[in-house]
Simulated assay, not measured.
Amino acid sequence: MNRFLSNATNRIDAKGRVSVPASFRAVLAGREIQELYCIQDFIFPAISIGGPDLLERYERQMVSADPFSPAANEMSLLIHGGGVFMRLDSEGRLMVTDFIRDFTGITSEVTFVGRSDHFQVWRPEAFHEAQMAARKGLARVTGS
């Protein structure tokens, strides 16, 4: 498996760590990703997490714009100002830092959500609400 798929909810331990699902750790290992790029999502109250290729994808988009344009400036503010690098500990846990908590509202549990080439961490209730809204939106578009 080389994609992040599905979702899982895990509890945060007393030291502020949460176990990343084994299937997600397997994708990270398969892609030889050790340093995680974490960014505040542009739309949802979630943190997007991937390898350095996730940052590079956003930076390629910025390079294609006029570096002095408001759009490029805003994108840099979000990509660079809203991102950090993190690592999993030796047991595959992620530290749930203030960077994560303040943006997502996560308190005691984390929902991990696969997004193909990266994954996200969400407050469980916010994920379920967004997923229901997406289902309703898709039903309107497809006429289901």
Results as ranks from 00 to 15, higher is better:
residue 142 T to F: 12
residue 11 R to Y: 10
residue 42 F to G: 14
residue 30 G to P: 06
residue 140 R to Q: 15
residue 5 L to S: 05
residue 113 V to G: 08
residue 124 P to M: 04
residue 25 R to I: 11
residue 11 R to H: 11
residue 19 S to H: 04
residue 26 A to F: 00
residue 7 N to I: 02
residue 67 P to A: 06
residue 73 N to I: 00
residue 31 R to S: 13
residue 72 A to V: 00
residue 9 T to N: 10
residue 82 G to E: 06
residue 50 G to K: 04
residue 78 L to D: 03
residue 98 D to W: 00
residue 1 M to Y: 01
residue 30 G to Y: 01
residue 138 L to E: 08
residue 116 S to Q: 12
residue 118 H to C: 02
residue 37 Y to N: 03
residue 64 S to R: 13
residue 49 I to H: 08
residue 102 D to A: 09
residue 10 N to M: 02
residue 131 Q to R: 14
residue 140 R to Y: 02
residue 78 L to V: 01
residue 117 D to I: 09
residue 19 S to Q: 09
residue 122 W to L: 10
residue 138 L to S: 13
residue 4 F to L: 03
residue 139 A to N: 10
residue 123 R to T: 06
residue 80 H to N: 06
residue 42 F to Y: 15
residue 20 V to H: 09
residue 124 P to A: 01
residue 33 I to L: 09
residue 142 T to N: 04
residue 102 D to K: 10
residue 114 G to W: 09
residue 44 F to V: 10
residue 91 E to W: 04
residue 85 F to Q: 13
residue 16 G to N: 09
residue 28 L to E: 05
residue 79 I to Q: 04
residue 76 S to F: 06
residue 26 A to V: 05
residue 33 I to W: 06
residue 87 R to L: 13
residue 58 Y to Q: 06
residue 128 H to K: 14
residue 7 N to C: 13
residue 119 F to R: 01
residue 105 G to C: 04
residue 54 L to W: 05
residue 73 N to L: 07
residue 112 F to Y: 02
residue 5 L to E: 12
residue 73 N to A: 07
residue 16 G to H: 07
residue 18 V to D: 03
residue 74 E to A: 04
residue 2 N to S: 10
